[in-house]
């Protein structure tokens, strides 16, 4: 198996998109998923509890210094950036907002490239700004796999569209097809 981790960025329209994606991911899905969903600074761990209830994977808010494990989804906590260290542990920071966002998708993706090089899959779904586009460019440059939700059918197209302005993504797909692709390449 070539790929060792998936980084996933989503913003406006995210809850619906994530629901479709995670209900279609196989119970046996192995590699870790690190997720940034833009959210309000005061949000609690609702998203983690919700996603845990609709799929068989372990879903949790990321803790600092936590070792990344298989079959687990890590969600960036509200008001913290999530980063990956070279030893595959997680870091949280309260650094400046990036693209008006904390957590920022670019911050996660760029650190993930440092840690995983070409063994990384980057995914951008629905969203209203351009956070994540730079990170996807780095993933592509490092030889990782880049996937975006088809902007034509995304609830808010700006975020996946912003990726296409920087790179030609390897796959432009509907949500169900993204799940299918992930199921097939990460067994």
């Amino acid at each position: 198996m070539k790929y060792e981790a998936i980084v996933l960025g989503v913003s406006a329209g995210g809850l619906k998109a994530l629901t479709t994606l995670f209900t279609n991911i196989k119970d046996s899905f192995k590699i870790p998923i690190l997720l940034v969903q833009h959210m309000h600074a005061g949000s609690d761990d609702y998203l983690a509890r919700y996603l845990a209830s609709i799929c068989k994977l372990t879903v949790k808010e990321a803790d600092e210094k936590e070792k990344i494990k298989n079959r687990t989804v890590y969600i960036a906590p509200a008001n913290y950036h999530l980063m990956i260290e070279d030893d595959k542990t997680l870091s949280l920071t309260i650094d400046q907002k990036v693209n008006y966002s904390r957590p920022s998708i670019d911050v996660l993706f760029e650190s993930a490239v440092d840690a995983y090089n070409d063994k990384l899959i980057g995914i951008i779904l629905t969203g209203a700004n351009d956070d994540g586009a730079r990170g996807m460019e780095q993933i592509k440059k490092a030889g990782g796999l880049t996937i975006i939700q088809n902007p034509k059918t995304a609830e808010v197209p700006s975020m996946p569209e912003a990726v296409t302005k920087r790179i030609k993504p390897d796959h432009i797909l509907e949500l169900e097809a993204i799940a299918k692709l992930l199921n097939s390449i990460t067994i």
């Binding site: 980063m83 870091s91 911050v107 440092d114």
Partner: peptide, 9 residues
Amino acid sequence: YSQASVRRR
């Protein structure tokens, strides 16, 4: 210090 953040800065 944690590397990832120092490296980013």
